[in-house]
Design a binder for these strands. Structure first.
Length: 655
DNA sequence: AAGTAAATAT
DNA sequence: TATATTTACT
């Protein structure tokens, strides 16, 4: 597409009141910088360039303006360091929600930062003080963006039949800096992919070779997909609409439909796994006193939970447990926090619910806390586990080899603040039929990123292999993660990373709560331990990928063993912590189990109950946990709580 | 056009 | 061989 074309397009009704005949004169730029002085200067410079400038000192406000009218701006230029919202976060959100080129601005020219910005989708990174010369050329990004995403164009073109695998990375596209926007987010990965693609289907470079390559659901593509679905809401997420939203090149409705089909399947499985687990918990859990997880730190999520985007119905459609989610929005759940301390669930209570996930359905979100004990019990476990997973996901994300990846993680973490405004991703929610506010609320956006960012298209469909440690099914998040992380490099790094890398966990409410939550009960505790341990023991990438195999064949390194035999045994997680666990974590974790059961539970296959093979492993884990629980004394919970809280704190600290 | 099942490719 | 993607069909 030429500049002329751009102009032509821009002059179209799409941009209505703006005259683009003189492009880039009049280009609408949104400048964001908390430093009003800088902002003013920037504003002045931009105006000198004859751009139509809009300024704001708040990232949130910027986001708001952008959301209000996506066609109101052509380009965003934002400072990196801002109090209300990290510039990168803004970048991420803008990249995800709108297709606007974003230019980062910072006085810090640290290569890492620049890398972070670029890899996160910034089309440019300017170092303050900005010179007008630099600003004079920023319009190119607008054009580039347009060029890269000739959405409408490609969709209807015939020659397009020979579309390439991964939409935007396809050869048909400009391979120059064009893919600055979302593609840039995972530069490294993207590159690899592109390389692969090139190697694989190189020949179909020319349309003559009508050999249509099969669509490769690249991470990027999948992310778009997920984002689209999220935006539409699961209900309206039909192929056609998704396709429109995806804005991907060379993708047909059929492709999307197919992917959607698979995705739904995946959701179902996830769901069923969880349901079963829930049942297991219901049946076996609660033997002992359990505390419900606290919902501390939910913070922003609460609001999010209220977002009516995902209707109960919608969620249910993918939830075998039908309606389990409904409970989530409940105040009951949210307020559990304080109850937790004094609530003790008796086995008897649980038994009533033991046989079905449907029981949940009956729980009214609004019923008073005390009436919700059973529910809480259910929630508690999966909930905490979920959280743990999320964390893991994060940790996983952090283990990354490069900045870009870290960035991703950041986004995940940071996005919380904006959760309430961001188009969420129902899919994630689905993942947690049992869900809890946590997963419900937080998963959405973050997972979104996760899925898309980290995982390849190959693993997310396999919730089952998620493993017993993860126990409560993975939110898509985990599932998606993995495959694409260069495993080797990560592996060795895991340990260190966990300790030194900026874990984003607590940067947001999202993360911290998990720990606290998990601190409440033995089960939860274990769950988190498992999670923690796992993430530490394994390479992020593989951790979730082939857990199944690993665990079944590698008993020595298996968490189950560690958890089952070590934990109850001496009450120390030391064994777990040894090499991989961050010291801090260790400390906080250790001692946890003191006062716990003295029973040594040896994990053996014989103990397994006959369960659906698909979910057996997961349930196994739960079973084990449950068993171990028996005999645990209610005592020490407080300390547990404390410790766990501390743990959370430590995590934060570590970060 | 959506959804599902069968076919086919990797 | 198992999976994932594409195609066919209602």
């Amino acid at each position: 597409m030429t500049v002329e074309e751009i102009r032509g397009n821009m002059g179209g009704g799409e941009r209505g009141n703006n005259n683009y005949d003189n492009f880039p004169i009049g280009m609408r730029v949104l400048a964001v910088d908390d430093d009003t002085l800088c902002l003013k200067v920037l504003d002045g410079l931009l105006r000198k360039c004859q751009y139509q400038v809009t300024t704001t000192s708040q990232a949130r406000m910027a986001l708001k303006m952008l959301r209000e009218n996506r066609d109101r701006f052509d380009l965003v230029i934002s400072d990196v360091h801002m109090p209300d919202m990290d510039g990168f976060k803004l970048l991420e959100l803008v990249g995800l929600e709108m297709d606007l080129p974003v230019i980062m601005l910072s006085a810090n020219s640290d290569t890492k930062l620049v890398m972070k910005g670029i890899s996160h989708g910034a089309c440019d990174y300017l170092v303050k003080p900005v010179r007008i010369e630099e600003l004079r050329n920023i319009w190119q990004h607008v054009i580039r963006k347009k060029k890269v995403e000739p959405k409408s164009e490609s969709k209807s073109n015939d020659h397009d039949k020979s579309y390439q695998g991964s939409g935007e990375s396809g050869r048909g596209q400009s391979t120059t800096g064009g893919n600055a926007d979302q593609n840039g987010k995972c530069n490294k990965k993207r590159k690899d992919e592109e390389d692969e693609n090139d190697e694989n289907g190189n020949d179909n470079e020319d349309p003559t070779t009508q050999k249509r390559a099969r669509v490769v659901w690249s991470i990027e593509l999948h992310r778009k997909f997920v984002a689209a679905v999220g935006q539409l809401g699961i209900e309206k997420a039909v192929p056609k609409r998704i396709l429109d939203l995806m804005n991907a090149e060379g993708l047909t409705r059929e492709n999307v439909a197919s992917h959607l089909q698979k995705y739904r399947l995946y959701l179902k499985r996830i769901n069923s796994v969880q349901t079963q687990q829930a049942n297991m918990v219901a049946a076996l859990g609660g033997r002992d006193y359990m505390r419900m997880g606290s919902l501390d730190g939910l913070g922003d999520f609460r609001t999010f939970g209220g977002s009516g985007r995902y209707t109960h119905a919608a969620l249910s459609s993918y939830t075998s447990g039908g309606g389990m989610l409904g409970r989530l929005n409940s105040a009951a759940g949210l307020s559990v926090r304080n109850l937790a301390a004094s609530l003790l669930l008796q086995p008897s209570h649980c038994q009533n619910l033991s046989n079905s996930g449907n029981a949940f359905t009956k729980l009214n979100p609004n019923i008073p806390p005390h009436a919700n004990q059973n529910a809480s019990l259910f929630q508690g476990i999966p909930a905490s586990l979920e959280l743990d997973q999320l964390q893991q996901a994060k940790s996983t994300e952090h283990i990354p080899l490069d900045e870009s990846r870290l960035l991703t993680a950041d986004v995940l973490g940071c996005s919380n603040n904006s959760l309430s405004n961001v188009p969420n991703n129902p899919m994630l929610l689905q993942g947690n039929p049992l869900g809890n506010q946590h997963s419900l609320n937080m998963t959405p956006f973050s997972s979104d990123l996760f899925n898309t960012d980290v995982n390849g298209s190959s693993n997310w469909q396999n919730p089952i292999q998620l493993s017993k440690f993860q126990s409560s099914s993975f939110p898509l998040t985990e599932s998606f993660i993995n495959s694409h992380l260069p495993q080797n490099s990560v592996r060795g790094a895991a340990t260190t990373h966990l300790q030194n890398i900026p874990l984003d966990f607590s940067s947001t409410a999202t993360v911290s709560p998990p720990f606290e939550d998990s601190s409440r009960g033995e089960i939860q505790y274990r769950g988190s331990m498992a999670g923690a341990v796992q993430s530490m023991n394994q390479t992020p990438s593989q951790a979730w990928v082939d857990t199944k195999q690993r665990y079944s064949h590698n008993s020595n390194n298996t968490l189950s063993h560690n958890l089952t035999s070590q934990v109850p045994n001496n009450g120390s997680m030391a064994s777990l912590s040894n090499e991989n666990f961050g010291r801090r974590m260790d400390m906080s974790l250790i001692g946890r189990s003191n006062g716990g059961s003295s029973t040594v539970v040896q994990h053996t296959d014989h103990e397994k109950l006959t369960l659906d093979s698909r979910t057996r492993s997961n349930e196994d884990y739960l079973l084990e946990s449950t068993k171990q629980q028996v005999g645990f004394s209610p005592q020490g919970y407080d300390s547990l709580d404390d410790e766990c809280n501390e743990m959370g704190a430590r995590w934060r600290h570590v970060r």
